[in-house]
Amino acid sequence: MIKDLFKIFGPILLIFVLSLLVYKVGLGKVLELRKSIATERKNETILQQKLDLLSQVAEDTAQASFSSSALPEKNPALITLSQLKLLAGNSGLLLSNIKAGAAVKGEAGLSSVNVTFDVEGQRSAVIQLLKNISLFAPISKVEKVRLNEVGGILQATVTVKSFFADLPQKLPAISDAIKDLTADDRSILREVLGLTQPLFVDIPPSQVSGKEDPFSP
């Protein structure tokens, strides 16, 4: 009797077990594969967009050095000083008592340094100098001004704040999406391009002069 029952229901039971196995393993694998395809398609789109973007922005990125001189990596006190001296020289003004404060770390990785100086000259020339401070690189702002006028000569003590910031530490992963510059970014970039560039950005270490071996003939 049991043999008969096995003969009748055995094959269907076998098919049922096999179907269950195929359903569990096979369908699971197919679903996993579909998920991988969807993810990889998404990654492919990101990569394609990234490649297209990098091909388009090559021209804009050529101006990256200007943005670096507008917001340098290192304390720009000396560059600011050089720019101030150039401005003063062009207007026939005299700078004195120049002092640079300690660097201050601010919000969003932005640091600043205060440069204080005295300036003396015609009223219009001094005011023009103060106005021009916002027009040079590195980005600087007139923080505080104290002045008086004696015999038609204006004497001012000015505090200028110059900004600097660390460079980004790492590149995004190759499959990470990157965004194009926004209209706002481009307008900032245009402003940066209009700034008076400094005569130097890095101060090279002084070269060893004379003979390499002082005892050689």
Partner: peptide, 10 residues
């Protein structure tokens, strides 16, 4: 581009 975006943001 990364440098430019970083500088512009700051």
């Amino acid at each position: 581009l990364v440098l430019l975006k970083d500088r512009i943001a700051k």
